[in-house]
Amino acid sequence: MEKGKKKQSRRKFFFKTATAAIGAIGGAGLIAQSCETKKESGETMTLLSPDGKLVEVDKANVAPARMPAHGKNARKGIPNKKFVMVIDLARCRNARKCVSNCQKMHQLEPEDEWIKVFLMQDSDDTAPYWFPKPCFHCNQPPCVKVCPVGATYKRTDGLVLVDNERCIGCKFCMTACPYSSRVFQWKDPGQGKEDDENYSPETSVPHKVGTVGKCDFCPDMARMGKLPTCVTGCPNGVIFFGDKNEDIVTNGTESFRFSELIYDRAGYHFMAELGTEPNVYYLPPVDRLFDYKKGFKTLTPEQAEFYKKSIVHKH
């Protein structure tokens, strides 16, 4: 019973995000390419396309809202794209909306975080700052090198994804990743059938027990011209995302030339000395908008105490 209910609520959630996402201005023709046609429910709904047109769609065609590539196509990149992320450390105040949005998008348990916010301090005398950390989607990914079955792979568009239908759960990638970006499904997440036809490495859902998961840069959203959910969720516009090939990154409200932003703000790679060539760039936490202490407000006292104690010293 419990499980059934859970599933139902999830579907409902799916549906809601779908409509909200479609209704929002911005984005591309989701409706036009409505996915695999399921049984028509007869019930139609009216949706707004990004350029302000109204479209009538069958409700059954709207859920699930995400239409990732499957199988071999999910192993190829989106043609001629090179996705990059730029994280502006000067703006982060640990609002944790990126975390919660990501958890919603990827149906994660509340403890599992694919994007984490660390409290960092480079050395004892320097200032602490908040440090959101997704997967770096490295160009020389140590995790991909060591995977024995090619379950985790590098695409031409720069993304490193995990195929949970191929993963054997050896966890070698988790030991190989120097940035602790990977999360293991230690117990059955109870998200439906094993061979779910909706599963795609581009959405990473439903999760499968005994396999590895991590931040995927929401490539199915990118296929629709939409930003990853951590980017749209951030209230302070900390996270910029874009295509390095077209040299534009955006946080949803502001757009910059990627090269100019990195040049002007002295963007850098975290632990560049490891030679992993990340596709995530950081803008240094100078002239910060918030005192780092503000970041404790979003935490429970217990959490705050923990963060203060376990402050991470960047090496």
Partner: peptide, 16 residues
């Protein structure tokens, strides 16, 4: 130590 013993044959199918 393997999470998915049932996929042991993947080593032969997809071995890198």
């Amino acid at each position: 130590c393997m999470g998915r013993l049932d996929r042991l044959h993947h080593l032969a199918l997809y071995g890198r």
